[in-house]
Design a binder for these strands. Structure first.
Lengths: 151, 151
DNA sequence: CCGTATCCAATGGGATACTG
DNA sequence: CAGTATCCCATTGGATACGG
């Protein structure tokens, strides 16, 4: 748990080594680091419409392990984006609900989903074009001037 | 010399095994997996306002390695979100520009930045509240009820 | 049913050295 | 200046087994 951080105490308030203040203080970076894992956005999206229990989430997502679902839910709960309710029954029942704060974020992520669906074909097309150009680059023919300028 | 081929960016959207069709076909998942790394969003944000060259980006970001900046720029270029221009000068000059497609995405990410800045304090507050409750759970004092039952 | 604990493979990403 | 090529470690996340 408590590692050796003694040597760091001698230093004058450096947040992260070799990082400037801009990044460390940037809330966007912090939030992105929280959202940008494999399952968080998906779970939040599923809870946006209605309250669900653990097993339901696991079934609807499909392919997530118990460990990761628990971990993801804990993270969202810690950030105040969802709420966890335990009903002392037998067998136990646990429900997860999105909070008002979580709703506002889910709305934004919905917009991102809309963008993805609207522009996915363009991205895929750009990818195949890029890969095709890479293939051609292996054959040094007209490698002059400004290469691969594409809009 | 290169024993193992580097399939890094050259792969055409591979689908992970043991995933159901819902996830694999979901464009949002695909885009999130592309955006959700350590530097992509930051780089796109810096290029939103103006064209910049490699060294400028590295300096302004601060803390990113050459390898990761190159990798990030390649990924964005492959997706058609930025364009790369090489000017055959001595010393060589390379500039990166955001594309119209990239602009639309950058706008959304700007909204996400706005959310982060607006709600960061709420999230931090929720976190400390959660952590505080965790501490209390170590001392089992009745605390029975519907909420937060830790074992 | 809802977790927690442990092990382990895959990936991400930094440091460094070298090239055109 | 703008990369490429290696090495290597820290983190992520899946599989499995166990517990309230």
């Amino acid at each position: 748990m408590t590692e050796e951080i003694e040597p760091l105490l001698a230093q004058p308030l450096q947040i992260a080594p070799s990082w400037n203040a801009y990044q460390a203080a940037c809330p966007t970076r912090l939030m992105l680091n929280r959202i940008a894992d494999k399952w968080t956005v998906l779970v939040l999206g599923l809870l946006e419409s209605e309250t669900k229990r653990f097993s339901t989430l696991q079934r609807e997502i499909g392919g997530i392990s118990q460990k990761m679902l628990t971990q993801t839910l804990r993270g969202l709960e810690r950030d105040g984006l969802i709420a966890r309710m335990v009903y002392p029954e037998v067998p136990p029942r646990v429900e997860y609900t999105i909070t008002p704060l979580g709703q506002t974020l889910a709305g934004l992520l919905g917009a991102l989903r809309g963008w993805s669906e609207a522009h996915m074909d363009e991205v895929l097309q750009a990818q195949s074009a890029y890969d095709k150009a890479e293939q051609g680059a292996l054959k040094p023919e007209a490698a002059n001037g400004v290469r691969r300028v594409r809009f």
